[in-house]
Write a protein that binds this DNA or RNA. Sequence first.
DNA 1: CATGAATGAGGCTTCATTCAT
DNA 2: GATGAATGAAGCCTCATTCAT
Lengths: 222, 222, 222, 222
Amino acid sequence: MIDLNINITINSVLYTKDPDSSDLGRNIITYSIELINEIGFEKFTFKKLSQKINSPESSVYRYFNNKHMLLIYLTSWYWSWTVYKIALATLNIKSSEEKLKNAIDILTKPILIDNSFSYVNEVLLNKIIITESVKAYHSIDVDIENKKGYFESYKDVINRVSTLILEVNPTFEYPHMLITTVIEGAQQQHYYSEHLPSLTDTKKNKDSISNFYNKLIFKLIS
Amino acid sequence: MIDLNINITINSVLYTKDPDSSDLGRNIITYSIELINEIGFEKFTFKKLSQKINSPESSVYRYFNNKHMLLIYLTSWYWSWTVYKIALATLNIKSSEEKLKNAIDILTKPILIDNSFSYVNEVLLNKIIITESVKAYHSIDVDIENKKGYFESYKDVINRVSTLILEVNPTFEYPHMLITTVIEGAQQQHYYSEHLPSLTDTKKNKDSISNFYNKLIFKLIS
Amino acid sequence: MIDLNINITINSVLYTKDPDSSDLGRNIITYSIELINEIGFEKFTFKKLSQKINSPESSVYRYFNNKHMLLIYLTSWYWSWTVYKIALATLNIKSSEEKLKNAIDILTKPILIDNSFSYVNEVLLNKIIITESVKAYHSIDVDIENKKGYFESYKDVINRVSTLILEVNPTFEYPHMLITTVIEGAQQQHYYSEHLPSLTDTKKNKDSISNFYNKLIFKLIS
Amino acid sequence: MIDLNINITINSVLYTKDPDSSDLGRNIITYSIELINEIGFEKFTFKKLSQKINSPESSVYRYFNNKHMLLIYLTSWYWSWTVYKIALATLNIKSSEEKLKNAIDILTKPILIDNSFSYVNEVLLNKIIITESVKAYHSIDVDIENKKGYFESYKDVINRVSTLILEVNPTFEYPHMLITTVIEGAQQQHYYSEHLPSLTDTKKNKDSISNFYNKLIFKLIS
DNA sequence: CATGAATGAGGCTTCATTCAT
DNA sequence: GATGAATGAAGCCTCATTCAT
C-alpha cells in the first residue's frame, strides 16, 4: 500500500476530545483495541483500560463520555479506513466490473496491517468489528444515535459500493441490500471459520469466502 | 398453523432447572422476552426481571445461572421453533425446489405469532434474536460454549436447509455459507428497514426482503 | 412523658424497606442522625455511614434509595413525633386557649429526649431539622415530591395547629401562615442563639423564644 | 427606582478576585444566578458554570475558592442591595411608623427587577435566596465563617430595621427576633405559595403576605 | 425447594483542584 | 494573568451471588 501522509478524519460528534490530538489519546485507541480483543467489550471498562495505559480513569473520560462512544469511534475509524482503501483500489480504473471486483475484495478478504496508521492495529480492529460492531448499532438508542450521525462512515461505504453496483447494472433494484448482505456475511464467515466451522464451508481454501461473495454478486447483478 | 399438542424440547445443558416445568419458569421466559425488548440485553438484569415477576432474584437463579445462559436458552428455543416450522412447511412436499422455497420464506418473511406456545411471544422474541443474538455467540467463550453444545439448534437449522439446497443442486459448494448469509442478512434487513432505512432498499414493497433472498438463492444454485 | 407502647408510623413511600423492621434499619436511623450532626448533610454519604455502622454500603441502599430520601424520612419521623406530642399535650383539655398554648410550647421550647423511641435521639434530630430540613423541601423536585406525599406529616402538624387557632378565633384569616412562621421562626431563633447571637435577643432568658412566640400568637389572634 | 450611578460594595473577604472588576467576573455572577436557578445549588458546579460561560474552570477559581464562597457572595450582594433599597425608601421620611412600614414592604413584597445593576437579575437572585440561602449559613463552619464576617450584610439589614422598630417602640424587647422572623417567614410564604400552597393562606390576595406581616409587626410592638 | 435478606466488589462518573504553559 | 490539560479521590449506585431460614 502506498505510504501517503494522511490521517483518517473522524466526525467530532464521536468524541469529546480528539484522540488523535495527543499521545494519551492515541494510547487510548491502541490499547482499547488490544483490551477489547482480550476480554470482550462487555467486560471492557475504562478502569481496566486506564490501568493498562497507566493513566487515571478520569483522563480517559476527557476523550470519550463512555465506552459505547469509544466503540462507535472505533467502528467509524474502521469504515472510514475502508472507504479510503476502496478509493485507492478503484483509482484510475476504467472498467466498472473491475472497480467493483476490487471493492468486493477489500470487503471480503482477510485484513492486513496498514502501516500508514501506526497507532491502529487494523487486524485486531477488524476482529472487534466482526465480534462487537453489531453492539454499536444494536443499541436501544439506535434511532437517536443515527440522527446524530454516529453511523455515517458505514453508510458511506455502503453508498459508494452501491454506486459501483449500479454502474455495472443500472437497473438492479437492491444494491444496498446486496452490499450489506455481503459485507456482514463475509465478516460472519471469517468468524465462523475460526470458531464455528460447521456453519461455513471454508475448510479447503483460504479464498473461498471472497470467491463465494464475488460469485454471488456478479451472478445476481448480471 | 395447525394446533399440535407439542412442546419445544430444549437441551438440558442450557438451563439449571427446566423453565417449562413450572409457572415461575414460564413466567421467567415470558417476561424476560418483554424486558429485554424494553431495555436491551445490556441493561437487563435478574434483579429487574424478578421485580417484574414479583419473585425473588434467587428464584430466577434456580433456572439460569446467569443472564447469558438465559439468552442462549431463548435463542435455542427460537431456532428449535424454526426447525419445527420448517419441518411442518416441507412435510409431504415432493418438489425439492418447493421445499427450499418454503423454508426460505420461513427464514426471511416477518414473524407471526404462533399460538401453539402460549408463554412465548414469538414476534418479540424474533426482535431479540435480530438485536441481541449475535451477543449470544460473539462471546469470548464461544469455543468452550460451542463444545458444550450451546448452539446445536442453530446448527440444526443450517444443516437442514443446507440439505435442501443440496437436494436442488448436489454440486453446490457453499450451502452453509449461503444459508447463514441469507438468514442473518434477512434479519439485518428487517432491522435496517425499521431503524436505518438508508442501509436497505425496502421502501416500496413489504415483501422485498423475502423476494431478494429467494432470487439470490435460486440464481446462485441454479 | 408517659411510656406508651407505640411506634411512629411512616408512610411507606418514604423508604424502600422499613428501617423500623430490622436492627440494621434502626442502626441506620440512629447513626445517620449522629453523623449528619457531626459533618453536615452535604458531606454525609452512605459510604461514611456504612463505615460507622460496620455494614456494607449496599445494605443501606436496601432501605433508602439515596441520602435525600433518608432526610425526607427523618423529617417525616420528626413531624409525626411532633403530632403525637401535640396530641398527648391537648388530650382531655377543654379550654381552646390552653390547648393552643400547649401546642405552641411543644413547637417553640427546646426539645427533650423522649425515651419512648429508643433508637432516635430527638435532641440531635431536632438540630438536623433546624439546620438541614429546609434542604428536604427546597429541592428542585419539590413539586413532584409534594405530589408523592413526602411532606404530609409536616402538613399534618400545620393543619392540626391551624385548627386550634381557629377554635380560639374562628375568623382569623391566616392560620397556616401564622403557624409556619412561628414554627420555623422558633427553630431559627434556637439556631441563632447558639451560632449567630446578634441576630436574636435571647441572652438573658432561656424561655424568651417561647415567650416571644406565645405573645405574638395571642396578640395577633385576639 | 431612581437611577443612581452606584455599585454594591462587597467586603473583600468574600472573594479572591472582585467579580465586579472584569467582564469574566460579572459573567460568573450573571450566569451562576441563572444556573443555580436551573439545577439547584447542590448540583451546581464550577465545571458546569464554566461550560455555560465558555471559560475554563480554573478561571472561575481566580474569583471564588469554591461554590460555597460564591453563594456567600451572592447572599451578601442581595442583602447589601436590600440595605440600599431600605435606605432609599426611608430617606427624608419623618414618621418612624412610615419608615418602618416602607422597610417592611421591601422585605415582604415580591421582588422587582432593578435596572441599576445590569449584570444581576434580582428576581432570580431572590429565588436563590429563598431556596438556597439557608444553606449559606447552615454550614458546619458557621461559627468560623461568622467570625470572618461572612454574614455582615444580613446583620446590617437586621440591625437597621431593629433600630426602626425601637424608634416606634423603644421598650420592645425582641426587635431582632421579630425582624428575622418576618424576613424569613415572608420568604418562606412566597415559596409555599408557589410550591406548597397548603402550608399558607395566599389564594385570594397577592398582597396577603405583606399585609399579614405588617399587621403582625404593628400589633406586636404597639 | 423456595425465599428474602444481605453483601463485597466494582462499574460509571463527577468533583475539586493543581500544574505547566 | 489566563488558560487548558490532567488527575486522585470520592460519590453514587448496581451487580451478581451467597447464605440462613
